[in-house]
């Protein structure tokens, strides 16, 4: 692999609060090439916070520090708010969990996607419309002309999530973060949406960070996986070797999930060891 797209060294995110400082991410280091990198963990493990920090979306009073945070030739640590505006949407973007909350409910789908083109690519109204329709087709929406004129509430969950992906990819970013992009969807729809994401990432040679709590999806979809616990990356492994994971937390997580293949009288529960956080 050539030089990585993204290099992160010793990333820390903390939030001051009444009870002292909460360290949401602790000394996380990783790199991302043009590949699918999964981040798994339970609620509060810092996986989404890591994603948000990479996009400069941690707002006051949260504090982000790192030794290195590089994206291509840009030093993300030195970015000003206007630098971020140039990067976000154009060169990096993020698909969130629930299309119901991340699409603007009072604007038509087509207008929302077109806005990205006009803002980041300087497209004319006509060009934006063409790009939007082409993108809707690329995310396998059967009837782009109709969907262009619909409002978000008129779409199903799966269609809404496709529209979100279209909006994020229309400016052709180099790097995409998908934060639980399929958790709100039914299993059969889930796989269709993953397939679309997979094709687009491969065809456009993008780097993808895929955040999820679902070990089955991550191990079958990603190339590499980071397992986070309490803000720390406790283990990194190839996705296909996840079942051979060594860290006791990863092993416990795998054992705790009821599986279709193995019948167990009782599920293993996770006994947390304070040493994991040291």
């Amino acid at each position: 692999m050539s030089a990585p797209l993204l290099t992160v060294e010793d990333l820390n995110v903390s939030f001051p609060g009444r009870g002292g400082i909460t360290r949401a991410v602790r000394n996380a280091s990783f790199t991302l090439g043009r590949e699918r990198l999964g981040i798994v963990g339970e609620s509060g493990s810092g996986k989404s916070t890591t994603g948000r920090a990479l996009l400069g979306l941690i707002s006051h009073p949260g504090v982000v520090t790192a030794k290195t945070m590089r994206f291509g030739s840009d030093d993300l640590l030195a970015c000003t708010e206007s630098d971020w505006q140039q990067l976000r949407g154009r060169r990096m973007s993020m698909v969130m969990q629930d299309p119901k909350y991340s699409l603007n409910p009072v604007r038509k789908i087509g207008q929302q996607i077109g806005e990205t083109c006009r803002l980041h690519l300087g497209s004319s109204r006509k060009d934006a419309e063409q790009r939007t329709l082409a993108m809707l087709e690329a995310v396998k929406i059967r009837n782009p002309d109709m969907v262009y004129h619909l409002y978000p509430h008129q779409l199903s969950g799966g269609m809404g999530q496709r529209a979100m992906i279209a909006m994020m990819l229309v400016a052709e970013p180099d790097f995409l973060i998908a934060d639980e992009p399929t958790s709100a969807l039914d299993v059969t729809v889930q796989n269709e949406v993953l397939r679309i994401l997979d094709d687009l990432v491969r065809d456009r040679g993008m780097g993808l960070i895929f955040i999820s709590h679902n070990l089955t999806i991550v191990s079958s979809f990603c190339d590499r996986v980071l397992i986070m616990y309490g803000g720390k990356i406790v283990e990194e492994c190839a996705a296909k070797d996840l079942h051979k994971a060594r860290h006791p937390y990863t092993r416990a997580l795998i054992a705790a999930a009821p599986s279709l293949d193995v019948q167990r009288a009782e599920l293993a529960t996770v006994t947390r060891d304070p040493e994991w956080l040291l």
């Binding site: 339970e42 609620s43 709590h213 070990l215 416990a252 997580l253 705790a256 999930a257 009821p258 009782e266 599920l267 293993a268 529960t269 996770v270």
Partner: peptide
């Protein structure tokens, strides 16, 4: 619920 909590609740139910 998270997987680890789910395991506890499922065990409790059985």
């Amino acid at each position: 619920l998270d997987v680890s909590v789910q395991a506890e609740i499922l065990n409790l139910l059985s």
